[in-house]
Write a protein that binds this DNA or RNA. Structure first.
Lengths: 340, 340
DNA sequence: AATATGAACGCAAACGCTTGCGCAACAACG
DNA sequence: CGTTGTTGCGCAAGCGTTTGCGTTCATATT
């Protein structure tokens, strides 16, 4: 089949151990021998078997990345940037796509990453049991997307501040009936939706606007969900003149619903999203931007650092990346309608 | 650390070989012993080390997936569905994100998948040298996205038919000046753009429309590129009344350019895309839909089949999935302008 | 000149599994 | 009751690395 380390050793007239040391830059090999071995290895097209290497050394040079839906822009982007950091550092990434509850359960019970990865980056928030399972792996752990958990390095954004800037923007424009499309469908421990909701409520209170439960709808974090939610909001007795969607996908769904209702954006209703999706710009969506790719890269970097310095296991770092409101064309003052 | 096979063997009062056979469903183990071993293994939380297993058996139960940009919708979606098929079959996926030329080169020279995967699915078209490198792995190979190569199972769509339906639709609406935004920037061997271009030219010829090179622009397969390309097209002496974009992303860029030019779609110019992007619906884009997720799943299935029946290595299958034109709101007859 | 020091390298023992083979024990056959 | 199968299991030899330790030899030290 392909060349093994002993083939290289034989061809170079040295022992296998020397080949191993030479190729991995370990001390104890003279420069000339190292050069010769390197040449022979290249000529034979030799690459060390990762299986054998990790069996012997315990290091796998592989990072496990678990993500809910690779297909969604947010996760795809985080994964993309994280992978680049990992591969630049010589690590491979083992991907686990845990869309359905079944695959998710299967992953956490069988834990296929055991003895296979040096660290894991989770793009979903594990519940108590799941995070315990991950901790049992005994490797550094990191998470993007909110919800701090013990033992995890988490990098995220300030959901509160982001939401406040969005909602306050609507208030400043003069809106009083401000709806919200949330993504509350997730599991309990997933804190982002509740943080955003709290921030939304606080801004309303600050502005002296009484909260109307009828102006909240669940959009399930999808385009379709957002469309449904907006449709619901339009059906209440006094519909909102502006809505804050907790994700751009939902905001886009809302835009579609509005178009179907022949309502003008932003003249009839203003819309602001969250994320700054790749295509938010295309549809002119005002949104609060978060550095998605950077979060993935940063989480990856933190993980690598922990691998490099296994000494002082830093007790669950927490990094917050900046957010900012991006004004585009879906927000404007409310249309003065009749009295008031 | 974590339990090993000998721990389980000892606890169950049998030999390691029996544990191995029992847990993997191999014959030669009585049902009662198997049950007992299973119980002990579960209680100890035992999972076989993949490194050791693959070192011993040669099978890695891992598939390498190489993709140009995980972050892009198309690739993310293909990856998503392929991963599901693989993981359902008990395979893990090792992801290689080869965005930049450097990482790409590094991947193909160092070939980190060597001795690490049982098969590889490539979402990018390897050139002659690269595909030779992959073939040297001696494992089943598959590709989505056009461009057949020896030794690869390829699943794709009929680019020709797809393009024809799109362009013919524009012709049927009465358009005579039909522009095209292509993604020709790729490497030579990447056939999709040229196939689509040929189909475009053929339809024009069939319709008795002389081809105008000024109506073609490169959009680089990105939103920004599409916007730039559309801007260029609008600057020619007699701008197109309709444009066919070779991808939805570019079409969306075109839409943005048109909006910036205060041109109405479809009244002033019609736009049709290609892919049926997740958000094509949101912007009302007429497009030719291709079953993206299905392509990933199908490619994965074909790969698994080859792994199951290593006997008759089928000589490079080729699968074509159906496409269909999806009519939405960005196409209409040309606005009658002045004379002619 | 004798000894200590260190650099360069080889030996061999892991690492945790798989698998061909051998060996009991027992059933079925004539 | 001896043969021939069959079934269930253990032995031990790998799989291709890494790495602690030992050996050799040249150089520095007294």
């Amino acid at each position: 089949m392909t060349a093994s380390i002993t083939d290289v050793a034989r061809a170079a007239g040295v022992s296998a151990s020397t080949v191993s040391r030479a190729l991995r830059g370990r001390p104890g090999v003279s420069e000339e021998v190292r050069a010769q071995i390197t040449a022979v290895a290249a000529q034979l097209g030799y690459t060390a078997s990762r299986s054998a290497a990790s069996l012997a050394s315990g290091r796998t040079f592989t990072i496990g990345v678990v993500v809910p839906y690779v297909g969604r822009w947010f996760f795809g982007t985080v994964l993309d940037s994280a992978e680049q950091v990992f591969s630049a550092a010589g690590y491979d990434v083992l991907l686990y796509n845990l869309g359905s509850p079944e695959t998710r359960k299967r992953f956490f019970t069988r834990l296929p990453v055991r003895k296979r990865v040096d660290a894991v980056l989770s793009l979903l928030i594990p519940d108590e049991e799941e995070s315990a399972a991950l901790r049992s792996l005994g490797v550094p752990l990191a998470t993007t997307v909110g919800g701090t958990r013990p033992g995890f390095t988490v990098v995220g954004i300030d959901d509160r501040a982001g939401t406040e800037s969005a909602v306050r923007h609507l208030v400043n424009l003069g809106h009083r009936r401000i709806g919200m499309i949330s993504g509350s469908s997730g599991p309990q421990h997933w804190t982002t939706p509740v943080e955003r909701r709290n921030a939304y409520l606080d801004v309303l209170t600050d502005a002296g606007i009484e909260h109307d439960a009828a102006l909240e709808a669940d959009g399930d974090y999808t385009v379709e969900g957002g469309e449904r939610a907006m449709t619901e909001l339009l059906a209440v007795s006094r519909p909102p003149t502006a809505v804050f969607a907790q994700s751009d996908e939902m905001a886009m769904g809302a835009l579609r619903a509005l178009r179907r209702h022949r309502l003008k954006v932003p003249d009839d209703v203003s819309v602001v999203g969250f994320d700054d999706h790749e295509l938010a710009d295309v549809v002119g969506l005002t949104t609060v931007a978060q550095p998605v790719a950077e979060q993935g890269a940063e989480a990856a970097r933190l993980l690598l650092r922990q691998l490099d310095e296994p000494d002082a296991e830093p007790p669950a770092e927490q990094v917050r990346m900046p957010i900012r409101l991006v004004l585009r064309e879906t927000t404007a003052p409310p249309r003065p309608r009749g009295p008031q």
